[in-house]
Amino acid sequence: MTAVDATGARALGSPVRGGLRLAVYLLWTLLLVPVQALAVAVRSPLRFRIPRFYHRVCAAILGIGVVVRGERATDGPVLFVSNHSSYLDITVLGSVIPGSFVAKSEVAGWPFFGALAKLQQTVFVERKARSGVEKQRDELGARLDAGDSLILFPEGTSSDGNRTLPFKTALFAVAARRIGDRPLTVQPVSIAPTRLDGIPMGIAFRPCYAWYGDMDLAPHLWTVFTLGRMTVEVEFHPPVTIDGFSSRKALADHCQRAVARGVERAVSGKPPPPAAA
């Protein structure tokens, strides 16, 4: 966050609110961790429902209002592909999608958040290891074959939230998988923070949500706890399958364009297009 943005965020934030939110967040997390750990250990169906409930409450604790547009695909396992600008995307998408995330392998070693990611049955991949593409494809495919929906951030890194970076095509190899006799459903999803206390967020304050570049995590997280209510828009775009495209690159490009248009609409305040009849 720049000096101007940080100063503005501090002016809007409340340390008292931040302390209360932090205490409630930690208490809520400590209460749910053993419950989810048990559900995962015994392979209870609740291991997929608890994270969504957990993230919904976390969003409320953090003052994040999630506005959903479009319809989430629900027929069979789905590969959701989304833009990525913050660790807060996990809470927002986790509150509306019953699925597991695909994350870079480094996340597994993060203190606290790495443990939470493992409890949500995150699939960890080595994004820079080109030689391991087939292994990663098989790992993702095994989860999809088991009926698990997955949430993928194909940009490979987080952005400033004002734009969508090109999608990397390597992990789209799993889209060629067939679930039974049908191709895997792939659904593009746009996510964008749009308002702070009801006021359009704009470029200056979007870094209050976005975490990217060389930002330090702890100060950014504290800013999030202290700020007022944020509105984040999630748009589900029409689902597709690899059968409609000539290659996985063509599929990745289509998803990137759909997501980019959704982000542009959200940050500019334009209404989404009417649903097809």
Rank of each mutant, 00 (worst) to 15 (best):
M1G: 10
V4I: 02
D5R: 12
G18Y: 06
R21I: 03
Y25T: 06
L27S: 06
L27I: 14
T29I: 12
T29M: 11
V35E: 02
L38Q: 12
V40Y: 11
P45Y: 10
R49V: 12
R52D: 08
F53E: 02
F53H: 03
Y54C: 11
H55Q: 15
R56M: 07
V57P: 03
V57W: 07
T74H: 08
D75M: 04
G76K: 08
V81T: 08
S82H: 00
S85K: 05
S86V: 05
S86I: 00
D89P: 00
I90Q: 08
G94D: 09
I97F: 03
G99I: 09
S100W: 00
F101Q: 05
E106R: 12
G109D: 15
W110K: 09
F113T: 04
L116N: 01
L119D: 04
L119N: 00
Q120M: 14
Q120V: 10
V123W: 00
F124W: 06
R127K: 14
R130A: 15
S131A: 08
D138K: 12
D138S: 13
L140M: 15
D145F: 00
A146V: 11
A146W: 03
L150Y: 09
I151S: 04
F153V: 08
P154N: 09
T157V: 12
D160F: 03
G161H: 07
G161Y: 13
N162G: 00
T164I: 08
T169P: 00
V174F: 10
G180A: 00
V189H: 02
I199C: 05
R206S: 15
A210R: 09
A210D: 10
D216A: 15
A218N: 04
T223G: 01
V224N: 12
G228P: 02
R229G: 02
R229W: 06
E233A: 02
V234M: 02
F236D: 01
D243W: 05
G262A: 04
V263S: 10
A266P: 06
P273I: 03
P274N: 06
